[in-house]
Design a protein around this nucleic acid. Structure first.
Lengths: 120, 120
DNA sequence: GTCTTGTTTCGACGACTGTCGATACAGCGA
DNA sequence: TCGCTGTATCGACAGTCGTCGAAACAAGAC
């Protein structure tokens, strides 16, 4: 549960060395979870919500899609390891797992050298 | 073409404030391009290749899929704005656009505070 | 010009995805 | 207990995606 720290530093930028086949499959699942506008907004809505967590009732309002669809997207995010969830009484709360985001973020980090060198 | 610098700094982490509807649609397209294992490996193969660029002939070998499929994936990456390409004589070369990766990377950056605060 | 090699486009096919309404489940309050 | 509200699951449907072989296009070699 708490062992998220190792995940943060697990991935050097993918621009430094070729991604392994298995790692690519794994990472692709996480990116796929981020590949829908509704899920992206859900994630940012949860993360920026007061206290770092939000109940589903906070999340259905801002969208034009039905409640079952929101529930489906939340499930996708959860199964991708991007958010955690817990039922507390009547409501179910969701929060972002920062280690997962950090993992992807560091993976995409482009070395400054490459960035500067790309003056084409 | 050259206006990539502004893109680098355009996006504060999505965990700080809710993503706008249009921004989410835009970003989702880029993440969708990353949501396939073959494309992820292609991207990292291109980026980590000597000189920061690779010709298609360097990219078809490591994969089990047909060459037209590789070409298709390269097109997806190109249309997502993640790579650039150019024909030089017989061969076509691809390179990564670092600004695009940096944009996504910074977007996913989880503030240390949120990380620490998630001690549930 | 004609052949050869490298790359892209085309058309088709099965599999997966996002969405919905209907329904089921969970917990609270009367 | 019964009803009410919040959330998840189910089944269905249209649309998109990854893949292939065949064919077209591009550039150099003979």
């Amino acid at each position: 549960m708490l062992g998220q720290d190792e995940a943060v530093a697990c991935c050097s930028p993918m621009v430094r060395e070729p991604l392994g086949e298995e790692a690519a499959v794994d990472l692709a699942k996480m990116f796929k979870a981020l590949s829908d506008p509704v899920r992206l907004r859900l994630l940012s809505l949860i993360a920026s919500h007061e206290g770092g967590e939000a109940c589903v009732c906070d999340l259905t309002g801002p969208f034009d899609v039905s409640q079952p669809t929101i529930s489906h997207h939340l499930k996708v995010l959860r199964e991708a390891g991007l958010v955690g969830s817990e039922r507390r009484g009547t409501w179910v709360y969701y929060w972002v797992l920062p280690a997962a985001l950090a993992k992807l973020s560091s993976l995409l980090q482009a070395p400054a050298a490459a960035s500067a060198g790309a003056a084409r």
